[in-house]
Design a binder for these strands. Structure first.
Lengths: 201, 201
DNA sequence: CAGGATCCGCCGCGATACTG
DNA sequence: CAGTATCGCGGCGGATCCTG
């Protein structure tokens, strides 16, 4: 890839993550390590040759690294890769403002993208650990003043569970629908802290 | 340009500002409106055909607009364009961490890029209005808790002036050199507020 | 079947020349 | 000074093939 050759932070960043799909791959990995095929599956339009090339580039740039877990090969962000989160949230926040009319035709939806946008809305004064169940998909959400960690995986030791159909959770995350149709189990005060931490009514 | 077709803020943002050179043009305009030739001059490697195409795209996306001032045509950011600043600073901050060894061979330097990185370091508890003179170039720096505005232009009504050679200011901005070699005139307390607002020793 | 590699075609982009 | 026109290359999209 052609470099900008400028002694400037933005230019150096774009030298590494300015290529097509690169930041979207980082966004995907922000919700936990994933397999090659999972990344491909959640990024339709990204072809296998380019994904392989990008993963190699990003590994050389020390943004991610390959790990082996339970016999599976997984791609996981390094500390340096996770440090891209503020930039990704800032860019994402700017982009959300351009999405007034709802999804365009042929726009794809993924709950992971809505989950990520919650990180931006997090005010950070409460803490807790809840599980969000949307249809078959499960997200583990830990929030505290100094740490915010969302992952797509089965929760262990979550103090509460928020459950709804795929459509209900999707409407809440993307469309600003009310929280109320969702079913809540477990520690209700944890759910209340969750709602207050995210500015929910 | 090919769109990602994802109902996600990051993807929508990259649809608009993900193309090569686009964010660097925004970065340049963050220090004030500029003429076509000025943008070209400060972005070596960007060819004139691509610059014209990018400016047209960005005008359609309402990131910038053409204005006429003193008979000159200028390109200026819109409010929406200026809202990209947090994302640019976040990406820039990430990139600065990859610049440990000083400039690489063939890296170009521009004071404007260092000025911009100061926005990131600004803590925002003081206010003032100073003029920075580096050789022939003059920057107008206004800082207050709720507003931070740096522009490359002649200052009017600045309460103090900080002056040095191009090399001295460059060393201070880029290399973390000490502030001391620079010559200061005018209201010394404004300079002190300036230094404290930027965490200078 | 997961995890790639290989080949082809197009268009975004770089370099240069040209115009009002 | 502010762009437009033309050409060529390489990054990227699409499809197929390979390998454990």
């Amino acid at each position: 890839m052609k470099r900008y050759q400028q002694y400037c932070g933005l230019a150096k960043a774009l030298d590494v993550v300015g290529g097509r799909w690169t930041l979207l791959i980082v966004r995907d990995l922000l919700l936990g390590p994933r397999r090659y095929g999972e990344i491909r599956g959640s990024l339709p339009g990204l072809t296998t040759n380019l994904l392989a090339a990008r993963l190699k580039e990003m590994e050389e740039a020390e943004i991610l690294h390959k790990i082996t877990l339970h016999g599976m090969q997984l791609y996981a962000l390094t500390a340096r890769g996770r440090e891209l989160e503020p930039a990704i949230l800032a860019l994402g926040g700017w982009g959300w403002k351009r999405m007034h009319g709802g999804p365009e035709e042929d726009d794809r939806l993924d709950l992971r993208w809505g989950i990520l946008s919650m990180k931006r809305r997090y005010s950070g004064i409460e803490s807790g650990h809840v599980c969000l169940v949307a249809g078959e998909r499960r997200f583990d959400l830990r929030f505290s003043p100094d740490l915010l960690d969302f992952q797509e995986r089965q929760s262990i030791d979550a103090s509460a569970q928020i459950q709804g159909t795929l459509e209900q959770v999707r409407a809440w995350l993307f469309m600003g629908a009310t929280f109320e149709p969702l079913e809540v189990q477990g520690d209700l005060s944890a759910v209340a802290r969750f709602r207050s931490g995210f500015g929910l009514p």
